[in-house]
């Protein structure tokens, strides 16, 4: 039964099924887990977080493309996409500049993946959403201002 209404536009292109939950899948993956950069995740100031990942001198680049809404319909669910056009892209970070801890996510890209990620984040208040990219050992960034509103109605 095809009930998946939300996927309607994708239905015809939907190719994957045969889903098998493999809790055990996790175990071999743990071995490759990168160490968590706790000082970056705990940092309360954007500058400290950037320093913690080594990106204090990151340069703004139009080769980093960030898509974020002008106005977040709901601050608890802000859809962000980041694409890097820089050769040798190794990692992508997403920051919400005015969150209590600005660093939201770090994505380490391994061979076989496009330099693209999309993720939905929570924002404490209107702020720049910043994407930092590490490519060939250098740091680059792009940012987009997103306003969040505290709403009362929705219909």
């Amino acid at each position: 039964m095809d009930f998946d209404v939300a996927s309607r536009p994708l239905r015809r292109r939907l190719l994957a099924t045969c889903a098998v939950a493999l809790a055990a899948l996790w175990l071999p993956l743990r071995a490759i887990a990168a160490d968590r950069n706790t000082s970056a995740f705990d940092a309360k100031a954007m500058s400290d977080a950037l320093r913690s990942i080594g990106a204090a001198d990151a340069i703004e680049s139009d080769q980093v493309v960030i898509k974020a809404p002008d106005i977040a319909e709901n601050s608890a669910i802000v859809h962000i996409e980041v694409e890097s056009k820089l050769p040798g892209t190794q990692s992508i970070w997403v920051f919400a500049e005015k969150n209590p801890q600005p660093l939201v996510a770090q994505f380490d890209l391994l061979p076989g993946i496009d330099p693209f990620v999309a993720v939905r984040i929570k924002m404490a208040e209107s702020a720049f959403v910043r994407a930092v990219v590490k490519a060939d050992g250098k740091f680059w960034f792009a940012q987009k201002e997103t306003k969040v509103t505290l709403g009362g109605c929705a219909g």
């Binding site: 669910i77 770090q106 994505f107 984040i121 924002m123």
Partner: peptide
């Protein structure tokens, strides 16, 4: 079975997290 993406997240990723990525080859 070969890792292509290794992500670390904070608590500021939305409830019921969404992730999109693109695998080549």
């Amino acid at each position: 079975g070969r890792p292509v993406l290794d992500a670390q997240w904070s608590q500021a990723v939305s409830k019921n997290p969404f992730l999109e990525f693109r695998v080549r080859g």
